[in-house]
């Protein structure tokens, strides 16, 4: 495959995160330039997420970094990887964050900056709840996260 901007850029990002990863983040797998998984822990002692590790899944289109990657939390039984409780994270792992939408995304963002944003999003949370209409959304949603239009009303996160 011809080297596209996406593969070139992802190879550089990977080189960087293999070298040094910020605290609380672990690269689990990156076997190709389409899907990576990263484990995330919250750095402070937020009682909601104490001693928990969450798994993030990144899906890159070949328009990356012009388009955002699809980022979701995935749940696993072994090792235990729950979906974090957060008013902007649905129980199927879909994250409502403007950074990950078409409009909030910018090509200067990268995998590491997304992870750090999510970390701080969890750190700053004190509500042990799911988004409004979570059950209905999870039951009916057939769209991929990038096609869902969220209304970003909460700029405190």
């Amino acid at each position: 495959m011809a080297t596209t901007l996406a593969t070139k850029r992802l190879s550089k990002e990977l080189a960087k995160i293999t070298d040094i990863m910020p605290d609380g983040l672990t690269l689990v797998s990156a076997t190709d330039f389409t899907s990576w998984t990263i484990d995330l822990t919250v750095l402070d002692a937020n009682p909601l997420y104490l001693n928990q590790t969450f798994r993030l899944k990144f899906l890159f289109s070949d328009k990356y970094p012009m388009e955002p990657p699809e980022v979701v939390f995935v749940s696993l039984h072994e090792p235990p990887r729950p979906i974090p409780m957060h008013p902007h994270i649905y129980s199927n792992g879909i994250i409502c964050l403007d950074l990950l939408g078409q409009n909030g995304w910018s090509p200067v963002q990268n995998v590491q900056s997304i992870c750090v944003s999510l970390q701080s999003m969890l750190t700053g949370n004190s509500k042990n709840e799911r988004p409004e209409g979570d059950t209905a959304f999870v039951a009916t949603n057939r769209q991929r996260p990038r096609d869902i239009n969220f209304y970003y009303h909460d700029d405190k996160v």
Binding site: E132, Q143, I148, F150
Partner: peptide, 25 residues
């Protein structure tokens, strides 16, 4: 460019710009 959605925290049933062709249900 796609229009910003107006729904609060809920997935829209249609997509902006091509409401009749929306792939979602």
């Amino acid at each position: 460019p796609p229009l910003p959605s107006q729904l609060q925290h809920t997935p829209t049933p249609t997509r902006p710009g091509s409401s009749q062709q929306g792939p979602c249900r």
